[in-house]
Amino acid sequence: MKNASLILNVVLTIAVAVLYYLHFKDRQPETTAVTKPAQAKGKEIVYVNVDSLLTKYEYFKDTQKVLESKRFQLENDLASKGRNLQNKVAFFQQRAATMTQEQGRATEASLQKEQQDILAFRERAAQNLAAEEQAKNKQLYDQIYDYLNKVNAQNKYQFVLGYTKGGGILFANPDADQTKTILDGLNKEYKDKQAQPKK
């Protein structure tokens, strides 16, 4: 009985092996064709170090000087208006005892209006300065884009990436760095424009 059970197990094992073989023998393994992605022939991906571009591009430096001068002028104007108002308040406090109640109220109202005018002036001036800075930044990026578009007329570059340390690009091969070439071209173009007589 034990032998019959052993023989039955061997026969069943062989039968399972035969069925397994017959079931899978006609199936060919599916091969997935691995194709290499097509390379962009003749086109490169390069980058420009944005920090270097901004600190060494003469247009950007000149623009920053103008904006810094306007900020400084605005701060001086506000400080001057603030000192003037403080002097008027101090004078009012000294003379308040000799004024009638009506004169005191009128002077106080006048000083409050002057303070509100200074705050409104500061707000308007800050908004105008921010709008001018935004317009200058747009001109900056338009100039860079136009220059890159002109330089890339032969469709040499597929992409020109802006690289900043800690930005979206984690690694940039120094061989693909075109910062100096593009910076030299931008500065030459800016210098040529500055040399042209103003209309």
Rank of each mutant, 00 (worst) to 15 (best):
L140H: 01
A125G: 07
I45K: 05
L85Q: 05
L119I: 11
Q127F: 14
A96S: 14
D146Q: 12
A135P: 03
E108T: 09
L111I: 10
Q86R: 09
K88Y: 05
Q64E: 07
T100A: 10
L53N: 00
M99E: 07
Q73I: 11
L111H: 04
L74C: 02
G82S: 14
S110W: 02
D62W: 01
E75Y: 07
A120I: 06
A125L: 03
V89P: 01
L119A: 14
A131D: 14
T63F: 00
Q115G: 07
L74P: 01
Y47I: 03
L119S: 08
N87Y: 08
N76A: 12
D117S: 11
F60K: 04
Q86G: 10
Y57A: 01
G82H: 08
M99D: 06
Q116D: 10
K70Y: 06
D51L: 03
K113S: 12
Q94N: 11
Q112A: 12
Y141V: 11
A79Y: 11
K56M: 10
V66K: 11
N76K: 14
F91A: 15
I118E: 01
K65D: 12
E123A: 11
Q139K: 09
L74F: 08
K81P: 03
E114H: 01
V46G: 00
N87H: 07
E102V: 15
K61Y: 02
Q115E: 14
F92H: 06
Q143K: 15
L111R: 01
E114D: 10
N84K: 12
K88D: 13
L54R: 04
L119T: 11
A109D: 14
F121P: 00
I144K: 00
L129C: 02
R122T: 07
V66C: 01
E102P: 01
Q139D: 14
A96F: 06
E108G: 04
K81E: 08
V48P: 00
Q103E: 15
D51M: 06
A126D: 13
R83I: 14
A126E: 13
D51E: 13
G104H: 10
F91M: 13
D142L: 09
K70L: 05
N87K: 02
Q86Y: 04
Y141H: 11
